[in-house]
């Protein structure tokens, strides 16, 4: 009994501070994975049933809606190609590092519950598909979180609203940089480090600034919902609502930024 408690305490300390226990965790996750598969069965079979049993008319309507959306997106894409080319030219002029583009991998959420006091989800892609720790995860609308743990066939994503998560962002309107912290409540982010006189308004869009090196720059994150200036306090109380559907997402995108290798200049050691 005392031994069990001691070993547990030791493991907790090591797990919190070091990474030595990752191999143990991934070994045990092989045992646990089938159970998680079974636990996710009711939800996934429900989705399968509703798709199989849905009426022809509904499918046609859905198809039509998707066609329209596709057309619209294609229209936007045309402009994007030209803009990207222009961006490349300008970057060339500035001699800044060339961004080739983002490679995207689609993953599905596995319907299982983790610890209710952490904002985490499990997705069905892992190390075998090239997922790596720290990879940015988006849903169709905005940034969702980042990969914190990779198993061979699944990985765990920490969402941006987890209290231990902080994300470097900038205000899209004027480029004001700050950090968005999770609050532990789904659908709420906090911007604790902005002074009272900073130029920020309700409705401003926050996008990733790319400063932390984890998230590629320019992806939407959240929208400001509340700005309260308290005269006695040094910082304003600012809340934002994530644009991603954190509680309803089914499919997510894993982004990997491709940057050109730094050019080797001759003569330098």
């Amino acid at each position: 009994m005392a031994a069990a408690v001691l070993v547990s305490l030791l493991m907790m300390v090591v797990d919190q501070r070091e990474n030595h226990l990752e191999s143990l965790r991934s070994t045990l996750s092989v045992v646990v994975a089938p159970l998680q598969q079974i636990a996710s069965l009711p939800a996934s079979s429900g989705a399968w049933l509703s798709e199989t049993l849905s009426s022809r008319q509904r499918l046609q309507e859905e198809n039509q809606a998707l066609r329209k959306l596709n057309l619209k997106l294609k229209g936007q894409q045309q402009k994007l190609v030209a803009l990207e080319a222009e961006n490349m030219r300008l970057r060339d002029l500035l001699d800044s590092s060339l961004k080739i583009g983002d490679q995207i991998l689609i993953a599905e959420l596995i319907a299982i519950d983790l610890d209710p006091y952490k904002q985490q989800v499990v997705i069905n892609r892992g190390g075998n598909s090239g997922v790596f720790e720290g990879q940015a995860v988006l849903d169709a609308d905005a940034v969702l979180g980042q990969v914190v743990r990779v198993a061979p066939f699944s990985s765990t994503v920490l969402m941006i609203t987890d209290p231990s998560h902080a994300l470097p962002v900038e205000v899209n309107r004027n480029g004001l940089r700050t950090i968005a912290m999770g609050t532990g409540r789904i659908n709420e982010l906090e911007l604790p480090h902005l002074p009272n006189n900073s130029d920020i308004q309700v409705g401003d869009l926050l996008v990733t600034s790319g400063l932390g090196g984890r998230f590629p720059p320019g992806y939407p994150v959240a929208e400001i919902t509340q700005v309260v200036n308290k005269p006695g306090q040094p910082f304003a109380h600012i809340l934002a609502k994530p644009s991603a559907n954190l509680e309803r997402a089914h499919e997510v995108l894993l982004v990997r930024t491709l940057t050109a290798p730094p050019a080797v200049t001759e003569g330098t050691p």
């Binding site: 408690v5 547990s8 305490l9 493991m11």
Partner: peptide, 13 residues
């Protein structure tokens, strides 16, 4: 602990 992704050892203890 592995299943709910908590600290290894928390539920064990």
């Amino acid at each position: 602990d592995v299943m709910t992704n908590t600290l290894l050892g928390q539920h064990a203890m």
